[in-house]
Design a binder for these strands. Structure first.
Lengths: 348, 348
DNA sequence: CTGAAAGCGCTTACAG
DNA sequence: CTGAAAGCGCTTACAG
């Protein structure tokens, strides 16, 4: 038996990449110790930690995400599901979450559901295959199968925009604000200003829009001025053009309406443009308010009264909460209410 | 030596996941063959392919992305770099690319550069660690280090929005349209309508904006009406409000200007709003045109004349080209010019 | 607190 | 055309 046989020629692919064992060798420790030292897992001698970190630094070592994911069964991906990319609201959410996550070394895997529960389910299936470290998902309105997928995956999950229904079973994490209360508050503002026939005009009709409507409804009922004919619901996608159309319909078919609460700013902006075109005075003939305080709502003629929603802060806070959950810790509170702000401008 | 020693108890983590060897066993072939059959690598007997596929189907097998990435040194990620998320233009690009890529089983890893070459470089470094199968990147204006990172990574790459400079060295792939020509065409439209003192007003001042300006300039020079004082450049971010400010400045400081070419629709929309507020007639007193045909430009008062840019088609075509490159094939053409369309409305 | 070894679930030279 | 085996680059029981 040859004592000195040469090292076997490498049969396989070499990457050229600096690996963990390179670092371990340079630091004079085993790969296990190097791994533990680098991840800040306790139970490693302080001086070894320093040595390993120095070696890693010197060799410009960066761990391979795929190897780490395979070995630990947990990737550095975070899946983020939003309904649409064509609504600034959700883009703001995505951007803030992505920024926060990236600062901690996580990559965002985004999914666009188009408000379709089937598509959301499919997306969840695909994304969960990547064993994401965490999941951020918009709203609380999901198919039963989606709910099971999320629960079964054991992936930490935070819901965006909505708060949990009070009295829900499991302690689900969410950060958002009270949509119904925001809708009620905006309606009360109108009522305080003396408007009585306040129409509620909505498109898209997702869960959050319906919550705003229930807020509007309860405020109207409390004031004794609620009428079912004041509700204008259109399931089509929200847009400037649709807002213009709905506005024309309302003023034409119900000239007595003295204020309109559009469930989203783009509808309200479209209405304002149409009013201008038709020579209808806002707010003298009819007041208009929107929701979300989107880009341009401070520039319209007249400037739009609306509710400012803290979506960037929601995205950031939700990401932060998710980061805590990923570490296996428990967030200070399971529900974070970030509130909203009534922005009174000239249109109402 | 015991002849019948029991199989060693599994010392490690079991995932519960259906693996390739499960499929191979069920199909009565080796893991290697199963792997090749599933990936459609030729050199596998047709009947075996069928058997393996049937087994995979039956067991609901889905390959593990991390294991595949580790072994093949190529993930199913595609990195997509865009400058901003707050400009619909880029969101449209991202959405179209993502949709096309996802249909072929690729996950999009997005990066937002904020028009910052340093940030782009950093992002590239991070994303390249994930060994993406491909890279989609906006524009052709990158730092030297970024270019080296891209080249060194050997990751197939397609540039978005711009076309390559004619006479560039390497055959780089890109899909977009001729920004300078679009700028020139829009200017010629104004000149044909009889406007002579056509100002060019721009913000952001990225490479594509400057190309549009050079188009404007050459058209103005060709008509013999170019003047340096007609250029209004502001490095700040583009917005409705800024458009309004620039408009006021121009009409105040250079009342002889009879038309303004804003480099982006949001500026033009802001200008239109300000004109309305100031009672300045568009296009009678001053004509206004924009660029990109963004949301709302058909709703302004008056409706905005602009250039429609095919960003969704660019995103899709670029993704398609990248898919071809990933397969190791050569695209029919390295440069795809998707053109643009002059949209004449009421503002000019 | 540390290390040797097994394993995560694939792909891919290599040999036949 | 097919299979056995090595390897991708980590993490993690296990033993000390």
């Amino acid at each position: 038996m040859p004592l000195d046989r040469p090292p076997p020629a490498t049969r396989h692919r070499a990457t050229g990449r600096v690996t963990l064992s390179d670092v371990a060798r340079a630091a004079g420790v085993s790969a296990s110790t190097a791994s533990r030292a680098l991840r800040g897992e306790r139970a490693v001698a302080p001086d070894l930690i320093a040595q390993v970190q120095a070696a890693a630094q010197r060799l410009a070592y960066v761990p391979d995400p795929a190897a780490r994911a395979l070995a630990s069964r947990r990737s550095d991906h975070v899946a983020v599901l939003i309904p649409l990319l064509s609504n600034t609201l959700f883009v703001d959410l995505l951007e803030a979450a992505q920024k926060t996550l990236r600062a901690q070394g996580y990559q965002t895997l985004m999914g666009v559901t188009h408000y379709d529960r089937q598509e959301e389910e499919q997306l969840l299936r695909e994304l969960l295959l990547h064993r994401p470290a965490g999941l951020l998902i918009t709203g609380r309105d999901h198919s039963q199968a989606s709910l099971e997928l999320m629960a079964g995956s054991r992936v930490p999950c935070v819901h965006l925009m909505d708060l949990a229904e009070p009295g829900g079973a499991m302690p689900t994490y969410s950060v958002g604000f009270d949509q119904a209360e925001a809708g009620a508050e905006l309606t009360r503002h109108l009522l305080r200003k003396g408007y009585r026939r306040v129409a509620f005009a909505a498109a898209q009709l997702d869960a959050r829009v319906m919550q705003r409507m229930s807020g509007w409804r309860s405020a109207m009922q409390a004031a004794g001025v609620y009428e079912a004919t004041l509700e204008w619901l259109n399931p089509a996608a929200s847009s400037l053009a649709l807002g213009g159309q709905m506005f024309e319909q309302i003023v034409q078919q119900r000239p007595a309406v003295d204020a309109i609460f559009f469930c989203n700013d783009d509808l309200a902006q479209g209405a304002l443009l149409t009013a201008l075109r038709r020579g209808i005075q806002v707010p003298e003939q009819v007041a208009i308010v929107g929701f979300n305080d989107l880009t341009g709502s401070d520039q319209t003629l007249p400037a739009l009264t609306t509710v400012r929603t803290p979506r960037a802060r929601i995205g950031e806070a939700a990401a932060q909460m998710l980061l805590v959950l990923i570490k296996g810790q428990t967030p200070a509170q399971a529900q974070v209410d970030l509130g909203f702000e009534l922005v009174e401008r000239a249109s109402a």
